[in-house]
Write a protein that binds this DNA or RNA. Structure first.
Lengths: 352, 352
DNA sequence: TTGAAAGCGCTAACAA
DNA sequence: TTGTTAGCGCTTTCAA
């Protein structure tokens, strides 16, 4: 520090640009450009595509950005470029929801690539889904992630008309709106049925929450067990309540109305946990007298006593693949596989 | 249907506006206005502030909107009005997270009022938090919700400079950046200590995940028990892993290193569940020999066996109040109470 | 109640 | 490599 050629500490800036009646008064790209002595577009390039700009300009702009504390306005950028760098995700529910793992990895992957995520929740209501979609489209996101398959035709039409890339997920269909990353609920029902039958179980029950995909798993389960020569499946619908308590009540009903039941397929791990809890209360030996299978593989069920057998879906992978597909589309690249089946696995633990 | 004066089915529209090299080619307000034979600004008013417009114009615009399938571009609207109608929320984690209840009610309340929510996740990383905040500010949201208190001074400075309204939450401090909806972790530690001491427990342990707020609860718990004449608290830090398994392992360590322990305060319900699970495995009578208290009141812990005693935070209320405060600010209304303490409650169930 | 003009802050397109 | 111009689609401002 013996040379005085080093510039003194960066002085605080007080640019005096006459501000018009509009705007927020925040530092804009123009201010930065002016400070660096270049045109706004050059400043823009220095920030967004630095290799299109001389090293000298880059330096001066970096300095100006630092001194002014400039933060780009992506709303303006989005409007000018027709690319919002925003994505949207639609989920039925968030609290204790099996979908959050997907949303987390979706969000992570998008964030790494410089994008943001808007989150909307439908609470399993079609009406709400429509409102949400309208609100989402009005933000012109670069892509939309939908948990499940879009139900209402009017929503489908709106999305189609908007031209925004879409990934549907957590399901399989031959005619997605656009792209799809999911798995077959029918196949799950079938495989679970076979799984139980192979274990010499004879009398089945299903405990399902009131949602369409769970119903499809249950139906396929019923059909397959019937095909395999078993007696009719006793079904308990717990309605919208997905709680552990519902699982406990469901087992009480099963014990009362179908006491011979020796295997239960639940539509979620939480319901299965409820069944296990009630079984313990009633001193029913698991899995000797009752075999219980969940759905979702919530992180903690493997460490409970007894450890819960369940259907595992690779939710993170769904999120990651969906993000990559959506990003590809947003950046005008080809998506090799518009429909991806990530499959599932029956994880056998102590409860079966 | 005997009169033919009824107009035929709305015909599909094919407006032929010469499109410039830019833009997406989507229907714009101009198209709608042209179709209705008014100026764009009139169309805007018919849609956004209908009572500033004649009934006739309103009708014609509504019709034009329907026929064209027009969806407003809120990116453009946001740029013009400096109001994005977007809010942002920052959470440490989403999967199985106690914060999601807050986010859900925040999102609900915002959505009802016509706003959207962007969600960002920090994974408890300060560096990530800074990046996230920069990304958020660049979107010019009308408000930002932060789970916890903003740690880094550089982040605080950035937010302050942006002038965007902020709610910090899930904590209490005398100098929030802007607004605050939370509760005192120190008080929780103190009350839990008193609670145990009143129940004649003598030898304490805490099981905490590696986060700052949990640490503060634990510290306050330790200090209070010491004040009350108890012996030193045995502390287990489970690190970043917030799993049920960590809880089980923690109890194993406690049993080994502090076998006289008769009460454990856990930093989350999941950890407490792990402790209970391991206790069952080891045939330790709950609550006779060991009293266990969780934190969070996750929906299902009340229906487990034994039902878990825990500290309940009204997460939904935090979300709702935060949304209302943020909306008030966005709409230039006064916020009566910039700092709100929503308190907490110790819920006693079977595990204590 | 309606409209013309001007701009929000940025970037695409073209030109030098 | 840098700059000029003209928007992106909407709303504010001001005027009628």
């Amino acid at each position: 520090m013996f040379k005085m050629t080093k510039p003194p500490t960066i002085p605080p800036i007080a640019i005096s640009i006459k501000r018009s009646r509009r705007g927020t008064g925040a530092i804009t790209l123009r201010d930065v450009a002016k400070l660096a002595g270049v045109a706004p577009i050059t400043a823009s390039r220095a920030i967004n595509t630095p290799n299109q700009v001389s090293a000298d300009v880059k330096l001066r702009i970096d300095d100006a950005v630092k001194r002014t504390g400039y933060v780009p306005n992506r709303i303006a950028g989005g409007l000018a470029s027709s690319r919002s760098r925003l994505f949207a995700a639609v989920v039925p529910s968030t609290v204790m929801s099996v979908f959050m793992e997907t949303i987390e990895s979706l969000n992570d992957t998008l964030f790494e690539a410089g994008y943001q995520l808007m989150l909307g929740q439908t609470d399993y209501s079609t009406k709400r889904e429509e409102q949400l979609l309208e609100a989402i489209i009005s933000r012109r996101p670069d892509g939309i992630f939908i948990t499940g398959i879009l139900q209402s035709t009017s929503s489908r039409a709106k999305i189609l008309a908007s031209g925004i890339p879409v990934v549907e997920s957590w399901d399989l269909t031959t005619n997605p709106i656009d792209m799809l990353v999911g798995f077959s609920h029918i196949e799950i029902g079938r495989e679970v049925a076979k799984f139980f039958v192979n274990k010499h179980r004879k009398h089945f029950a299903v405990v399902s929450a009131d949602d369409e995909r769970a119903k499809r798993r249950a139906d396929s389960f019923k059909a397959t067990t019937l095909d395999l020569g078993c007696s009719a499946v006793y079904a308990v619908n717990v309605g919208a309540s997905r709680s552990l308590k519902s699982g406990r009540e469901a087992l009480q009903r099963i014990l009362r109305d179908a006491p011979k039941t020796d295997a239960i397929f639940c539509s979620s791990d939480l319901l299965a946990l409820g069944v296990l809890t009630e079984a313990r209360q009633q001193n029913i030996a698991i899995p000797k007298h009752l075999s219980v299978l969940g759905f979702g593989n919530v992180p903690f069920v493997q460490d409970m006593i007894p450890a819960l057998s369940t259907v595992r879906i690779n939710g993170s992978e769904i999120g990651r693949l969906s993000a990559l597909a959506l990003i590809s589309r947003a950046e005008n690249r080809e998506v090799a596989e518009p429909i991806v089946d990530v499959g599932f696995a029956i994880i056998e633990r102590e409860s079966t």
